[in-house]
Nucleic acid binder design. Structure first.
Lengths: 138, 138
DNA sequence: ATAGACCTTCCCATCATGGTAAGGTCAAGG
DNA sequence: CCTTGACCTTACCATGATGGGAAGGTCTAT
């Protein structure tokens, strides 16, 4: 199977397959005499694993850890669960941040008449209110 | 005021102030004889506007549009509202995606015993379930 | 034999940000 | 006056994950 087929079957672009190989996430595959990469079902399986992990928002680094655990027969599932758990925490933090943004923006949009008046509360908020300058200890 | 003070007062790093200047988001400031950038309250105000917009998740490009509208006396606030509204939609889409990930991961974590057994449902899910391989017409 | 689809490597771009290095400037204190 | 340290300048490189493209080799079907 060439890289094109492997890409199609795994959902990972050929470009990214080569990239994953380059950064050591996957092992270099066999090559034909003419230097084409050759993949089998096992490699595609690995690529699908990677694809799924990436789709779930794991970074490539986290994916590498999961992949190692997947391929390690003696792994403890607690390790895997810990990776997933801390990932959930990170996702929830991100969600809260985004929800905060939506809340602020929604408020502004609802206060904005949307006509041609130049006194737009959105711009006023952006311009004048650095939120709580004192509480911004960051 | 030097770039360091402007940075401190605006919350934008000196590095980013130079970057924003380079990409044309802000105008090049005056310089001293010794080539130091000089900023006044107006410039800091602009930087704070930018900072706030970025904090709200607007891209630099969107921020540029908002900044232009802010500085345009004849603008229609409807334009501003449209930018904000479509930004809200984008944020909500992102939130939904993240929530989907959290849901899937939470399910897996709760099914995972967390002991030393090698049969970990998280890894099994990542490995075995390519979602819907047939519906993946992409 | 030739066309077209595929493969290879190599380089560049993105986006927003940080880091570092090499050098110039300024203010304070000896 | 000179040094020290904090600040400034530009220029280059890096990130993370992905895409684009060029220049060239290969395979397959006509």
């Amino acid at each position: 199977m060439n890289i094109g087929q492997a890409s199609e079957k795994s959902g990972v672009s050929a470009k990214m397959i080569r990239y994953y190989e380059q950064i050591g996430l996957i092992s270099p595959p066999l090559r034909t005499d003419s230097n084409y990469r050759v993949y089998g079902p096992d490699e595609v399986h690995v690529l699908r694993f990677i694809k799924r992990a990436r789709t779930l928002g794991f970074s490539v680094e986290e994916t590498a850890a999961l992949l190692e655990l997947w391929q390690d027969r003696t792994r403890a599932s607690a390790e895997v669960r810990d990776i997933a758990s801390s990932h959930i925490v990170a996702l929830e933090t991100k969600i809260s941040e985004l929800q905060g943004m939506v809340k602020t923006l929604s408020h502004l949009v609802h206060c904005c008449a949307g006509d041609n008046r130049p006194d737009c509360p959105i711009l006023e908020d952006l311009a004048g209110t650095p939120a709580e300058p004192t509480s911004k200890g960051h």
